[in-house]
Design a binder for these strands. Structure first.
Lengths: 367, 367
DNA sequence: CAGTGAATTGAAAGCGTTTACAATTTGATG
DNA sequence: CATCAAATTGTAAACGCTTTCAATTCACTG
């Protein structure tokens, strides 16, 4: 109604045929030029490019991928978006993908809580060439379907029990070990541990690291100090609340399986009248951006989230190029980042300072 | 190589023809059933559904959208992902989209810094049915291209100068006005303002609100107290650093155009030896999740980010359904959320407390 | 029981690419 | 100059779906 073009005809976007016509070639040749085929005359190539430029032509994604070409779209399955964790990883993914000229489709895993398989079906039947999964909980359901389709995917911060998947993770065991050891060396002997969702591989590894460090420092690990958690702030809060009111004497330090639950622990400690770090030391895991926003700044184990995202995206791209390549596993190093949330414990009546007092390990300078 | 199927043949995913064959109908009928066409016999419908179920059939997205069907994919153009701002909005978008059974393709705007138009071309030629833009800076370039294609889109937290776009935003002017007024009523008379990137509409509005409140409270606004900012933490830090060292007497309060730059202001204030809120009050804008993580908890103007995302997604969906619908504009209310970062100013020698002392306005209870 | 319009289904034409396959050119060789 | 392989381009067949168009079937009406 409101159009008043000279040519009339609703302006259709340019198709490959338009380019072919404009350059006096066949659409096959145009396609070849555009997909970088080798055997095209230079003159032809430039004629095509000129027409493309002039018409503002961009290939239709659906058509291209229907015809078997590459869609250059990668799927990303995330559990949520509200904390920096996923955002930071995604940043890395985006970096790698944008240099490979790929786009990202976001899937949130809460979406079809029941029928995961259907969901995976939907993803793999889409325009997506591959899938990145950030710390998925239901690996078994997903992975079976994915592999059955021979669909390229990479797990981020989660292991595949069968070991058949591409995986990018960090040294969870080692990181937890170092953090716990750090607390021991500060003189803490009652160190509570807030576990993550234990079906997630990283959570189990961190627990292992915690126990190992305790053992090495000659501190018996106590069931009462190992608390259930779920990687959420609320969970960290409740666990800490519980341990402070029910365990006597209370722990002098809390090692939370991730930063988010460490934030919850901080809340609970303060609510309990404890000041951080004077009355209780707190350590987190991940080093999400918020760690240096909280007060006091949180000492934590840095997981190179952005790099992990980047590495995973690159791995996926390689798998897409070469389907035969066997699944790799990349483990990136974690580092303890010492900030302001830890200090040696106050001595209670009758307590002696533990023999470990030097600091050690691969400790990064304060940030 | 490793397959051992009875039928052999690399297992192709089921197509519509397979379903047709399995149900003894034509693919046209299957298509009709699947797209909810009205005039299909109940018996037919159930035969189709059965076959679909049995084969685990999911329609191919590329094929469907090539053929003119709906792809149910929405594009989202974001400036970045590292702060909670975008994440929270996206959460809302995701909520609305998932109830409409749509997926999300993520585009980051830094990607093609030079040729935006090409970028828009690429987006609109893709599988995307519509586009959501979060606070885009280069509206003019984008919008022209978008409108020329008659491509449905909605702006979030950014206005279109020409007023031809669907827009979802918050009461920026009003929010800034209330926050400033709140500071005035606490007794502050030297209130610094850290501006946002002024090409973003919201930033300009917030500045307007600040000035208006000052005027109403009879406080002359001073150029020296209006600082350049860019909505980034670093910018807030530098602006505050600057104003504290170069303006005498220094401001007793800082109103930052968004939370992120308020965090920067907090850093700078502390670095300058000021304690918050005793020596200086600070107010932010947005109410990102981090606000209650920082110490002291930040008093801020809450922008209903999640709701904004949701509203925008819904608006876009409507526009897609009915292209003729004129562009709407939704403005959601902001509220001042009082936390711990503000207090009446300490009186300097010779100063009198300002006449405004009651609190007022639409103030939400502390959180 | 013929007639009529609605309900129901099928056949086949695209949608815009990619990609065998085939045809034509070109260049070098003998 | 004939010959052969390589280089270059075109033709046309998919890809898997939606959607006209037409055909068939139904349910009534008169």
């Amino acid at each position: 109604m409101r159009s008043a073009n000279s040519d009339s005809k609703k302006k259709h976007r340019a198709t490959i045929k338009d380019v072919a016509r404009a350059s006096g070639l066949s659409s096959a040749t145009v396609s070849r030029v555009l997909s970088g085929y080798e055997f095209v005359k230079d003159g032809t190539r430039s004629r095509v490019m000129e027409a493309v430029e002039q018409l503002g032509y961009v290939a239709s994604l659906p058509a291209r991928s229907l015809a078997g070409g590459r869609s250059r779209i990668i799927g990303l399955l995330v559990p949520n978006l509200d904390n920096g964790y996923v955002g930071t990883i995604t940043q890395g993914i985006d970096k790698a993908l944008s240099s490979a000229n790929c786009d990202l489709v976001l899937y949130t895993s809460h979406r079809q809580p029941s029928k995961e398989t259907y969901y995976v079906n939907a993803i793999t039947n889409g325009i997506t060439e591959g899938l990145l999964l950030i710390a998925p909980q239901f690996t078994s359901t997903y992975l079976a379907a994915l592999r059955e389709r021979d669909f390229p995917y990479v797990l981020i911060d989660q292991a595949d029990p069968t070991g058949n998947s591409g995986v990018v993770e960090a040294t969870n065991y080692q990181g937890a070990y170092e953090a716990t050891r750090y607390l021991c060396k500060l003189g803490h002997t009652r160190i509570a541990f807030i576990a993550g969702a234990l079906k997630v591989h990283s959570a189990a590894e961190r627990l292992r690291g915690y126990k190992a460090a305790l053992a090495e420092c000659g501190i018996p690990s106590s069931k009462k100090l190992i608390l259930d958690g779920d990687y959420q702030q609320q969970g960290g809060y409740e666990a800490t609340k519980h341990v402070l009111s029910n365990v006597d004497p209370p722990p002098t330090a809390v090692f939370a399986s991730n930063d988010i639950s460490a934030f919850g622990a901080m809340d609970a400690a303060r609510e309990h009248g404890f000041s951080i770090p004077d009355d209780i030391s707190i350590v987190g895991f991940d080093d999400v951006p918020q760690t240096s926003l909280v007060y006091p700044k949180l000492t934590t184990v840095r997981q190179p989230l952005e790099q992990m995202g980047q590495a995973a995206a690159e791995m996926l791209l390689e798998r897409i190029e070469d389907r035969s390549r066997p699944p790799q596993r990349i483990t990136l190093a974690t580092h303890l980042v010492v900030r302001d949330s830890c200090t040696p414990p106050k001595l209670q009546r009758g307590e002696r300072r533990s023999p470990f007092t030097e600091t050690g390990g691969s400790v990064l300078p304060t940030n």
